[in-house]
Amino acid sequence: MKRLIKLEHVNKAYRQHQALDDVSVSFDDGQTTVIVGPSGSGKSTLLRTINLLTQPDSGTLSIDDLAVDFAKPISSAQKIAMRKKTGMVFQNWNLFPNLTVRGNIMEGPTVVLKQSKTEAAAHADELLKSVDLLETADRYPNQLSGGQQQRISICRALAMQPECLLLDEPTSALDPEMETQVLRVLLELAKQKQAMVVVTHNMVFARAVAERIVFVENGRIRYDGSSDGFFNATDERIRHFLAGISLSEGSSMA
């Protein structure tokens, strides 16, 4: 399998707190990787690093044929070129409230990829249809439910035809029913071999989509391997983490 994203010796400190401690990890094309770990473990920082929304103090990142060294200044042209390779989905979806649903999905393709409006609109409608939300195309995000908005934000990311989709707690702010809607979309994408890196607290979700699990704690990677291996691990830390999660399962984690 082709290696798509590679992070090497990445460090990031916020004041006293070491969010990422010499992290080296890579992600493959066509694979769904789930990053799990306790709150504040650095998993979201890791994801934001790949999209260059957070700039680490040191280390390197390569995506496909592009590479940056975090110790050196990164030009905005470099950032844009790398961001085009990935698509980001946020916990609170962050749709643009001033644009219609279709406008949200067309924004990247028309402004960044310079696609024509007709082409971008056609593609947007196609994506909306695939998540059963075509009828919302002309409405504004604030008129829709969280589950609908999150599916639209997945469309917005996919419209850029990214090599890899990055999802930061995509279901944490949703109720179970909406969560299922989003999960269904992601399972379908996994089936189509869309590369995805998902940060989540939700173990049911992790079990359902993960081909590989990366467990992060205190800014370090403690486990990196198969999903089965993770859920049947004998390692005390992992068992402890999973036990804690199952206790709080069902309670709101948003």
Partner: peptide, 24 residues
């Protein structure tokens, strides 16, 4: 978050400002 979302699409600072932030 609006800056993050627009940046994640690969938009330039100027585009984000005029197209996303200013209208809001």
């Amino acid at each position: 978050d609006q800056w993050d979302a627009a940046y994640s699409l690969g938009m330039t600072e100027t585009s984000v400002l005029w197209r996303i932030i200013f209208p809001q």
